[in-house]
Design a protein around this nucleic acid. Sequence first.
DNA 1: ATAAATTTTTAGATTTGCCTAAATTTTAAT
DNA 2: ATTAAAATTTAGGCAAATCTAAAAATTTAT
Lengths: 218, 218
Amino acid sequence: MTYSEENYLKAIYHLSLSQKQGVNTNAIAAMVESKASSVTDMIKKLAEKELVIYQKYQGVSLTEHGLLAAKMIVRKHRLWEVFLVEKLDFSWDEVHDVAEELEHIKSEKLINKLDAFLGFPTEDPHGDPIPDKNGNIVKVEKQLLSEFEIGQTGICVGVKDSSSSFLQYLDKQQIALGSKIKIIAKESFDMSLTIEVEKKQMIISNKIASNLFAKIVL
Amino acid sequence: MTYSEENYLKAIYHLSLSQKQGVNTNAIAAMVESKASSVTDMIKKLAEKELVIYQKYQGVSLTEHGLLAAKMIVRKHRLWEVFLVEKLDFSWDEVHDVAEELEHIKSEKLINKLDAFLGFPTEDPHGDPIPDKNGNIVKVEKQLLSEFEIGQTGICVGVKDSSSSFLQYLDKQQIALGSKIKIIAKESFDMSLTIEVEKKQMIISNKIASNLFAKIVL
DNA sequence: ATAAATTTTTAGATTTGCCTAAATTTTAAT
DNA sequence: ATTAAAATTTAGGCAAATCTAAAAATTTAT
């Protein structure tokens, strides 16, 4: 598989997680930063290789084979992210672009040895699950902080948006994966939240709360 | 720089180490496994980018800029090889192909952090020198085992041929970097050598001896 | 239900890196 | 010094991945 085919496959995979139907041409184009016409071309190629199912004008979906291939790319991406953060001391907002390149290195042996070297992690530095060598994914029950009730406490376990600006905001506020967060109050006007993290109270906007995953405790 | 440009640059670098004159088109074609006409095309492109100096029919040589770029690719290749052997437990005959891919990952930060993680190694698993971040190379005085005199002792410090068949032969004979080798006798008919390694005597052909580097001791 | 807007596909080009075959230049041999 | 051989370059083409612009299909709105 080419570099480009892998990127399309990965885009289709990510889009299909948040869509029941076939994935739209335009959505793929936006994700891979190309044009709809380029997407149509590539989809045809992927369909010929039986990685996706394609019906003109009806969007695409992954075949079983395509799904596994996509998961293996995601697996590589996330394992490399763990490596960069845990071993090379990158911060969580710096790893994405490098991992985008590393994910295309073709060696099963490499990735399985890397997995072992890292101690078979199940989540990447942003809390996203790492598929195992068979494509199995451990699902953690978690919900957006914006969906928490007043008085509830959660442990931060992931981010929805992993843009560096958001991640740097969290660093600045000293919110990290593992932080214990208690919902103190919710402003009904703008849905901003007053929360308590490590004894300190702060106010976060609804946009922030809608991009932070936590699991309920207590 | 593209993947392909990097491979050509690296080929020119390797070839120019064992040639004073400009590097031949055909030699490059053999090294990158393409055709002479493709080489001519690429050379023109590299010349336009001022990475090489090119005069029709006269071969190419690297500019200062091109030399540094080539060294940085070699640096990445060899650092990744160290990583694969030291951290991921690959054997020295398995690392080349994966490193050929990894060497193209574009991140100075990555490679410098990897360098630090590995403890700033100066040689790769085959004894080849690793350029530092400025392109400086530590030269070790070493000579081919075939050039040793009878009675001399050397420490094996590198291989000239790093094909997996040769490396596997060395593994089988329990010759590794660091092995102490004494020349017991030399057969004038075929230049084969009787050597002593770790108390054991064995005979190696001239071809083997011509691909093993050692530094003289005692 | 039909027209308008949107989405998707097709058609035709472009760029990169490669090829084959032919032409040119250089090198080697007599 | 010519000629033959080898090396190199040029010319013309191909496949992959992309694009723009135009055509076709689908969806939305009135």
